[in-house]
């Protein structure tokens, strides 16, 4: 029973981090209709910068803020330099460009910082808590993870559902020409979408790095799982991303716990295939007629 409880709690903590990545992907997809494969690598670069700030002797929270700010800037720059020229081209081009950017950044990080593993601290204790006589696998840091990701999701919901800005961002993503005709200034909105998404990616990276350690490719697999979560939930839905993240985290935990750790990546693949077979647009996406 304790085993079940522990792997469930572990699955929830993992799921929340996966959800943060998925939220970042959803944010860009909603804003610019592109899946950003470089999101993890961009966050990885930013985490190295946070690491440098930490080792300059600054506290954790300063590094945290610096990382988020750098992430915003990095996202905006990426959109302006790499993505803007692709407007109106086949979506395949954007996939190849963001994927190439991922490879490039990982090589660059390896060239600058080397490939050795670095440890990155957590802001709160990672030790599980005792409730009565049983120790449960949920640490103060896990609480922070859950709260941070929930906050991110609520912010996104408010942005898209409750503000004029969010509405305009969605209009720009799905009908840029119409939006332009209606007088929406398209370019800055797209840039903003990328900046926010990159920041969400950075948050995920900062939440996962205390457990996984810092290397140039530490975000690879979490990006894959984040993608799984986004597909399960529907690339268009923040709530879907959260639910998809939890579903992914728990599936991985149960498959790992009861069937063997080496099957986890296959479990994620199976989850994607099954959910696409049942509901190709994702669980929470509103079905949209395909544009001709």
């Amino acid at each position: 029973m304790q085993f079940f409880l522990n792997i469930t709690l572990g699955g929830i903590a993992t799921g929340m981090i996966v959800a943060a990545v998925a939220l970042g992907l959803v944010l860009i997809f909603r804003a610019t209709n592109i899946v950003n494969f470089a999101q993890g690598a961009m966050a990885m670069m930013t985490t190295y910068i946070a690491y440098a700030v930490l080792h300059k002797g600054s506290g954790y929270w300063l590094a945290f803020v610096v990382a988020l700010a750098t992430g915003l800037l990095f996202g905006a720059l990426t959109q302006v330099v790499l993505i803007r020229p692709l407007q109106g081209k086949s979506p395949l081009n954007a996939i190849i460009v963001t994927f190439g950017f991922l490879i490039f950044l990982e090589g660059l990080a390896g060239a600058i910082w080397g490939s050795q593993t670095r440890t990155f601290p957590a802001p709160f204790s990672e030790a599980g808590q005792k409730i009565g006589n049983t120790q449960i696998a949920f640490s103060p840091f896990d609480v922070f993870v859950v709260l941070a990701v929930l906050a991110l999701m609520i912010l996104m919901l408010v942005l898209f559902r409750g503000t004029d800005l969010g509405l305009r961002m969605r209009a720009v993503a799905f009908a840029p020409e119409t939006a332009r005709l209606l007088g929406v200034r398209v370019r800055p909105l797209l840039t903003l979408g990328w900046a926010l998404s990159a920041a969400a990616g950075v948050l995920a990276a900062l939440l996962v790095v205390p457990t996984s350690s810092l290397t140039p490719n530490f975000m690879d697999v979490i990006l894959i799982y984040g993608f799984t979560a986004a597909v399960v939930g529907g690339l268009d839905s923040p709530v879907g991303a959260l639910v998809g993240g939890l579903a992914t985290g728990l599936s991985l935990a149960y498959v790992g716990g009861y069937l063997g750790g080496s099957l986890e990546p296959m479990a994620a693949l199976a989850l994607v295939i099954v959910s696409l077979m049942i509901r190709p647009e994702g669980l929470f996406a509103r079905p949209a007629p395909r544009r001709v």
């Binding site: 522990n6 572990g10 993992t14 799982y225 716990g257």
Partner: peptide, 12 residues
């Protein structure tokens, strides 16, 4: 690939 979900299942 095994990193992210951590080693939760094995250690548990």
């Amino acid at each position: 690939a095994a990193y992210v979900a951590g080693l939760q299942s094995q250690v548990a």
